[in-house]
Every structure is written in structure tokens, then in C-alpha cells.
Design a protein around this nucleic acid. Structure first.
Lengths: 207, 207
DNA sequence: ATTCGTCTCAAACGATCGTTTGAATCATAG
DNA sequence: CTATGATTCAAACGATCGTTTGAGACGAAT
């Protein structure tokens, strides 16, 4: 127990992350995962209990760090400009996808989880990480006093959609060969912040 | 042949649309589909050749009308305000989801298709309906002369993400029991238009 | 050297997948 | 009525799914 099999567990997690991102949770089989990771088929059930257990662990491994970074960035930018708070929300996702090998894949997995509308998974995300979103909502409410609660929630929902979609690289914009993936992602974040800031600052709708 | 089995074919399409929206293309089995539609299992292969054939037909059935409506609305709003063009792009999706029974499900299927990153499917969508997006891009370019081509494409990509996400009902906003689904969707469209218009009009980013 | 968890392995389990088959059923035209 | 093509049906196909099993390999502690 003191030195649990690091290599096998970690290889499974990394490969699963990539394959879930590409083919979805139902579309990627454990046989694909274990074959790609060059481990035995039974290793998944041994280390994670079940396929669902593996899926949960794929999330837990990254989300803990992501949300810790988000909260740290939020407290640092707490009373600053709207753009700073947006940055605190968006940039950690960018960092995730850069300084860890499978991070980009994970951001895609996260977006897919929202798309798959899996109630079990949504409950898991809401229970474990909902407080982060609530803290951001509070700060946004202070920075956007011209919006009532309904209006603010509508816009944050739209923002979440745009961020999720963009971060998951679903978009149609093709990165040029001349710009590195890192530069491309930084551009995406900058454009997202500018777009979202303007959208949030817009006057309340007549409705 | 003159009067091909309307009922069976159509029931399969409707049920498939709903189940694909809920469980994904890999997650919804033909046995689920045919059992729910109360038709024989073999009927899918008989009428559509294969599961992939069924998926393609689910798209074709709705996209033809959706894009026809979008183009009609675009020519009507061609030289109007930015909000009108956004309306022409967004509202037909809303209408799709209202005046046809499974329309709401289809919009979710469409969003999922983007999320699934299936190259075969993306090619199919791009080949058959890419010209619609190109026409909208031209109009946006005329209405937003302060943005260069790169900046405009970035923002349209963000817009597409927000629209896709919102229309697919992925968001966290729960509709109140007091407001009908139709009212809820209209509110979503109005908020989207306001948000997107402000985002598109924002000054160019310093980059 | 032996014991004891931890881990890996090949093999098999039953269930479910998409698809195919061939006969039964139906509607329609000759 | 009969012949013909279109459609439905129950049943089965082989493939693949997630999971379980029991034996063997490995390292550390006694």
C-alpha cells in the first residue's frame, strides 16, 4: 500500500482522459483504454472498481487543482476590474491544458460531460465543485450592480457556455501552423474575456 | 413504393432524435429506439440501411428546414441592425424547437454532434450546410467594419459556442414552473441577442 | 526460506451491441 | 383470385461490451 502501482494507474488515467475526450464515455471501451495504455484489461476494475469509477477519477484528478487555482486567482482579483475576475475564471482552464500533458484532453472531457447531460455526473460535479461557481457568482454580482439576479444568472449561463465551448476547441477556427498551440489558446482567452466583458456590461434587456 | 411506410419510418426518426439527444449516438442503442417506437428491431436497417444511416437522416430531416428559415430571415434582415441579423441566426433554431414535436430534442442532438467531434459527421454538416454560415459571416463583416477578419472570426466562433450551448439547454438555469417552455426559450434568445450584440460591438482587442 | 499483501495476467462470464436472414403479412395491380 | 413487391416479424449471427475469476508473479517483512 505504501507504494501503490503508480505507473499502471496513471497510465490508465491518462489514456482514458484522451479517449473519453475523443470518443465519449460510452464510445471509448475499456479494451481500447487498456490496450493503448499497455496494461491488462482487468487492471481498470482492480484500480477503479468499475468504468464509472474510472470516469469519476478522471474528473477528480484534474478538477481539484483547477478549482484550487480558480479560487486563488479569484481572491487575488477579488476587488479588481471585471476583466480580472473573468481572467481568474478562464485562465486556470487554459493553464490546465498547457502544463499537464493530458490537460487539453481533460478540458474537452469536461465540456463533453456537460453535453452528455448525465445526471449522475452533473450531481457529482455540482456536489464537489458547485461552491466555486457560487463564489464567482457573488463577485460578479458585486461588479455588475446594474443587473438584477435573473439577468445576471442568464448572462453567466451564456458565459459558461461560451467558455466551455471555446475551451473544448469545438470551434471552427483553425489554428495556423505558424502559431503554437500555446499562443492560440492565449488568444482564445483574450478574445473570450473581451467578448464576455462587453456582454456582461451591456444594459439590462427590456424584458 | 408510392406510399412508403410513413408511420414506422417517422416514428423511428422521432424516437431516435429524442434518445440520441439524451444518451448520445453511441449511448442509445437500436433496441432502445425500436422498443420505444414500438417497431421491429430490423426496421431500422430496412429503412435506413444502418445506424449511421439513421443518424444522417435525423440530421437531414431538420437541417434542411432550419437553414432555409435562417436564410429567409437573413435576406429579410440583410441591411438592418446587428440585432436583427443575430435574430435571424438564433430564432429559427428556437422555432425548430417549438413548432415541431421533437425539435427541442434535435437542437440538443445538433449541439451534441459538435461535442462529439466526429469527423465524419462534421464533414457531412460542413458540406451540406456550410454555405449558410458563410453567408452570415459576410453580413456580419459588413455590419462590423471595425473588426478585421481574424477578430471577427474569433468572435463569431465564440458566438457559435454560446448559441449552441444555450440552445441545447446545457445551462444551469432551471426554468421555473410558472413560466412555460416557450417563454423560457424566448427569454434565452433575447438574452443571447443582447449579450452577443454587445460582445460583437466591443472594440478590437489590443493584440 | 516462507509468508503475506499487492498487483498482473489470460481466460472466461453473461449481457448487449449492430446486423442479417427467411418466412409471414399486407396492400395493390393484373 | 392470384401474383408481386413492400413491409414486418421472430430468431439468430458474430462481435464487442463491462465485469469476474483464479492462478501466478513480485517485493517486503518475518
Amino acid at each position: 500500500m505504501s507504494q501503490t502501482s503508480f505507473s499502471t494507474r496513471e497510465r490508465i488515467l491518462g489514456v482514458a482522459e484522451a479517449l473519453f475526450a475523443r470518443h465519449g464515455f460510452a464510445g471509448a471501451s475499456l479494451r481500447q483504454v487498456t490496450a493503448t495504455a499497455k496494461v491488462n484489461l482487468a487492471a481498470v476494475n482492480y484500480h477503479f472498481g468499475s468504468k464509472d469509477g474510472l470516469i469519476e477519477e478522471v474528473f477528480r484528478r484534474r478538477l481539484d487543482e483547477l478549482n484550487r487555482e480558480r479560487l486563488a486567482a479569484l481572491t487575488k482579483a477579488g476587488d479588481g476590474k471585471l476583466e480580472d475576475v473573468l481572467d481568474a475564471f478562464i485562465r486556470p482552464a487554459l493553464n490546465q491544458s498547457l502544463h499537464s500533458q493530458g490537460g487539453a484532453a481533460f478540458v474537452r472531457v469536461l465540456a463533453r460531460a456537460y453535453a452528455e447531460h448525465d445526471e449522475r455526473l452533473r450531481r457529482f460535479l455540482s456536489d464537489n465543485y458547485g461552491h466555486v461557481l457560487r463564489e464567482f457568482a457573488q463577485v460578479f454580482a458585486r461588479l455588475l450592480p446594474h443587473l438584477d439576479k435573473d439577468e445576471l444568472y442568464w448572462r453567466l449561463d451564456i458565459l459558461a457556455g461560451a467558455v466551455t465551448y471555446a475551451m473544448a476547441d469545438f470551434g471552427i477556427i483553425k489554428r495556423r501552423a505558424s502559431t503554437s498551440e500555446e499562443v492560440h489558446r492565449r488568444q482564445a482567452v483574450d478574445h473570450l474575456i473581451g467578448f464576455a466583458a462587453a456582454g456582461l456590461r451591456a444594459p439590462p434587456s427590456p424584458g
